[in-house]
């Protein structure tokens, strides 16, 4: 499988080339074009595993409840993946490890990767941002997307990231939700509110913009809708 990401960072799209009979699992709706001989099956879970419970958990995470599985035929095929919002995409390879991805940033993965929700996310209920995190476990390539540009930060020790700017992080990192300033009142007034403090060693991928902030910027210019 070869992944090529084009038109970064504003209008990113991923071209995935599948060798004969290779497979790719992608978020429902992510495919924009593909070779005609690629087969597609839609399931509520990773093929041959999990079940409806996992699908419900995925739905709660803000992810689509359904996953599409693409199968190349006896010939090489290609699939183009894109996202709804303006933003970047990233290819990453997992080597028997775990990556935590913010709900909504998952795009696609190789079939050997287990897609699940980590309960680490439980703590972030208080963050006011996305509640759950998608947990990708295993070995293989993955594609994730962001709102705005995506950039990695190597953490060794401690690092603070605004919860809305986290795209993904290695689960070797421990995190706590904390206040940005020295006092709670200070943090609240600063507009930063709650932040995520990472501890340990690993990588955090951040996005340059926060979709909720952009949406709120638009609110005052949009016509109200009826309740």
């Amino acid at each position: 499988m070869n992944i090529e990401i084009m038109h970064r960072p504003g209008n990113a799209a991923a071209k995935v080339t599948l060798e004969p009979s290779e497979q790719l699992t992608a978020e429902a709706g992510a495919m924009i074009a593909m070779s005609g001989d690629i087969g597609i099956t839609t399931t509520t879970h990773k093929k041959e595993s999990g079940g409806i419970l996992k699908a419900v958990k995925r739905m709660l995470a803000g992810e689509s409840m359904f996953l599409n599985h693409f199968n190349a035929s006896s010939q090489r095929g290609e699939i183009w993946l894109a996202t709804t919002l303006p933003g970047d995409m990233m290819e990453h390879t997992l080597d028997n490890e775990t990556l935590i991805v913010q709900g909504g940033s998952y795009v696609a993965s190789e079939p050997d990767i287990e897609i699940d929700l980590g309960w680490q996310g439980f703590k972030s209920v208080f963050s006011g941002e996305s509640i759950f995190w998608v947990r990708l476990v295993g070995t293989g390539k993955i594609i994730i997307n962001s709102f705005g540009a995506i950039y990695p930060i190597e953490v060794d020790g401690e690092y603070i990231v605004d919860t809305g700017h986290i795209v993904a992080f290695n689960d070797t990192l421990d995190f706590t939700i904390t206040k940005a300033g020295s006092s709670w009142i200070n943090s609240f007034l600063s507009g930063e509110g709650l932040v995520c403090k990472f501890q340990g060693r690993g990588t955090v991928w951040c996005q340059s913009h926060k979709s909720s902030s952009f949406g709120q910027t638009l609110t005052s210019t949009l016509k109200p809708r009826s309740a």
């Binding site: 894109a82 709804t84 949406g215």
Partner: peptide
């Protein structure tokens, strides 16, 4: 040849929808 676009105006519009203020009677 086929030319395709990576984004959709409609999808952007749907995404914006929840950010509209709710007008109550």
């Amino acid at each position: 040849k086929v030319w395709i676009q990576t984004r959709l105006v409609d999808a952007m519009v749907s995404w914006v929808y929840p950010f509209r203020r709710v007008q109550k009677k």
